[in-house]
C-alpha cells in the first residue's frame, strides 16, 4: 500500500516536472532585448519595458542599469540626460532620473512621432571632477506591433518535419533491433 502511494506520488511529481518544463519553454518566448554599451569605464544595459517594442506617438520608457569597471560609479555624481536623435537631429530629450535608493539604476522618457530607426543617446556630465560619458543605442520605433507571428505554413512545415523524423526514427530503431533485450552503453 505504502509503496503504491509512493509510486503514485512519484508519478504526480513526474507529471508536474513535465508541466514545469513546458512552462519554461513557453516563458522563453517572453524575453526581450538588452544591449550593453560602454564608454570608457562606464557601461549601461538599456531596456524598454515591457517588451522592448517602442511605439511612435507614445512615450518610450527607457530603463538603464549602469556599471563601471572601477566600481566607483554612482549616478549621484553625474548630471545625466537622455536624447533621441535621427540623422543627428535632436527630436526629444529628458532628464535621466535615478530610482530611489539605487545608485546605478535610472530611467527616462522620450517620444517620437514617426516610426523608424533612431539613436538613443545617454550623456552624463560629472558634477565635479571626473570624465563625462556618452552611450549610444540604436532602436527601432514601430507604428504598431513590430512582431510578426509565424503563419500556418510555419507550423505545418515544422510539424511535418518533426512527424517525419519521429516516424523514420521509430521505424529504423524498431527494424534495427539494437535495443531488444540488450544492455546499452551508459
Amino acid at each position: 500500500m505504502a509503496s503504491r502511494i509512493r509510486k503514485q506520488s512519484m508519478r504526480v511529481l513526474v507529471t508536474a516536472a513535465t508541466v514545469v518544463l513546458l512552462t519554461a519553454g513557453w516563458s522563453s518566448d517572453t524575453v526581450s532585448a538588452h544591449i550593453l554599451e560602454s564608454d570608457g569605464p562606464v557601461s549601461a544595459v538599456m531596456h524598454m519595458p515591457p517588451d522592448d517594442n517602442p511605439q511612435a506617438g507614445k512615450p518610450i520608457d527607457v530603463n538603464l542599469s549602469f556599471s563601471s569597471t572601477d566600481g566607483n560609479f554612482t549616478l549621484i555624481n553625474y548630471d545625466t540626460k537622455l536624447r533621441i536623435e535621427r540623422d543627428g537631429q535632436l527630436l526629444d530629450q529628458a532628464d535621466v532620473t535615478r530610482k530611489d535608493g539605487y545608485e546605478r539604476e535610472a530611467s527616462g522618457e522620450v517620444e517620437v512621432a514617426e516610426p523608424g530607426a533612431y539613436t538613443l543617446v545617454v550623456a552624463g556630465t560629472p558634477q565635479s571632477a571626473g570624465r563625462s560619458f556618452t552611450l549610444r543605442y540604436t532602436i527601432r520605433v514601430s507604428g504598431g506591433e513590430n512582431r510578426t507571428r509565424p503563419g500556418a505554413d510555419f507550423w505545418i512545415i515544422n510539424a511535418t518535419a518533426w512527424s517525419l523524423l519521429g516516424v523514420v526514427a521509430y521505424r529504423m530503431v524498431s527494424l534495427g533491433g539494437r535495443y531488444r533485450g540488450k544492455p546499452t552503453g551508459r
Binding site: S28, V31, D52, R140, R147, R149
Partner: peptide, 22 residues
C-alpha cells in the same frame, strides 16, 4: 527571424535567450 524580421537587435537577443532556455 519571422517574429523579429524588422529588428536585428531584437532577433539576436531573443535568439540567444531561446538557445539558453533550450
Amino acid at each position: 527571424a519571422i517574429t523579429y524580421k524588422d529588428n536585428s537587435e531584437l532577433l539576436a537577443s531573443h535568439l540567444h535567450e531561446s538557445f539558453g532556455w533550450v
